[in-house]
Structure formats: C-alpha cells, structure tokens
C-alpha cells in the first residue's frame, strides 16, 4: 500500500513537472513574441496576431502554473503557528490544508459544465494556422485541468497520511 502510494505520489510529482514545463514554454513564447514585436517595429512590420497570442500564453501560463505551484510546493505557506503547536499542530494543519484544497477544487469543478456551456465564441485576434481563432473555451480548460489535479494531489497526501507517510517538503528529495 505504502509503496503504491509513493509511486503514485512520484507520478503526480512528475506530472507537476510537465505542467511546470508547459508554464515555462508559455513564458518563453511570451518572451519571444514580444521580442519579435520590438525587433520588427523598425522595419514597419507588425503582425496583428502576436499580441492576442501573447495574452493567450499569459492566461495559460497562469492556469498551467496553478497545479505546478501547488504540487511542487512553490506557494507561500506560513508554518510558525503550526510548529508552535508541535507534532499535533503539523498533523492537524496538514489535514486542514488538504481539505481546503479539496473543498476549493470541488466548488470550482462543479462549475465546469456551466462554464463550458456558456463560454462560447472566440478569443479575438488569436488566429490559428488552420484558419479561425482560438475558441474562448480553450482559455479555461487548463484552469479546470489544474484544479482537478490539485484535488488529486490533496487526496494523495491524505491517503499518505492515513498510512503514516510524511508529507512532501520543499527539499528536492523527489527530484531526479
């Protein structure tokens, strides 16, 4: 049981790495697009789709990053109160943090069908090579994907706790 959970945790950690890379690539794309915009300007060249695409990458960067920062523990956590309360405090707050993440994720995911049904239309100017423009729906997809994975991460941690495994820490013990 413990071994299976650890394996699962490691998988989740790697998946968070993939999302981190997705966020990195979005950032890199923003950097390149804006650089190109500046570089082309003296030649009087301006490709109108560059700016809308920069915005799309910016949105994706934020939403892909949500899961990555949660699972890879890049978010800010205040632990001096918990540490004051000793082991019991750390255990109690571990449960609270996981439950809060689960509650939030459940509330957001419950809205996914509604959001999918109502976000019709396109993102103006973000043209696709195949013609047409990026559907608005695609903007929120990474958010719901990340939210679902945040929930899974919290569940894994609760399961780990149940079988007596310690929580992950910011130390890169899982990094290859």
């Amino acid at each position: 049981m413990q071994r299976a959970l650890l394996r699962l945790d490691q998988l989740n950690w790697s998946l968070a790495g993939a999302f981190l890379w997705a966020a990195n690539l979005c950032l890199l794309a923003m950097l390149c697009l804006t650089t190109a915009t500046i570089a082309l300007r003296p030649f009087g060249l301006a490709l109108y789709w560059m700016w809308p695409w920069t915005m799309v990458f910016f949105i994706w960067l934020s939403f892909f990053g949500f899961f990555a920062l949660y699972a890879r523990l890049k978010d800010i956590r205040i632990d001096f109160v918990a540490q004051r309360m000793g082991r019991a405090g750390m255990a109690m707050t571990r449960i609270v943090a996981d439950l809060a993440a689960l509650f939030l994720a459940a509330c957001l995911l419950a809205q996914a069908p509604m959001v999918i049904a109502t976000s019709t239309g396109i993102y103006d100017g973000a043209v696709l090579p195949s013609g047409g423009e990026v559907p608005r729906l695609f903007l929120s997809v990474p958010l719901f994907l990340s939210t679902a994975l945040v929930a899974i991460t919290a569940l894994i941690d609760l399961a780990k706790m149940a079988v007596g495994l310690p929580e992950n820490t910011t130390l890169p013990h899982l990094e290859p």
Partner: peptide
C-alpha cells in the same frame, strides 16, 4: 486559513468561495 498552513493561493480561493 493561512495561519493553519494552507498555501496562500488555496487560502484566498477558499475564502472567496
């Protein structure tokens, strides 16, 4: 929530909900 070691992004999201 933040004093209970909840990551800040989760804390502000939960508080909002």
């Amino acid at each position: 929530l933040i004093l209970l070691r909840v990551p800040i992004s989760i804390a502000i999201g939960t508080a909002t909900v």
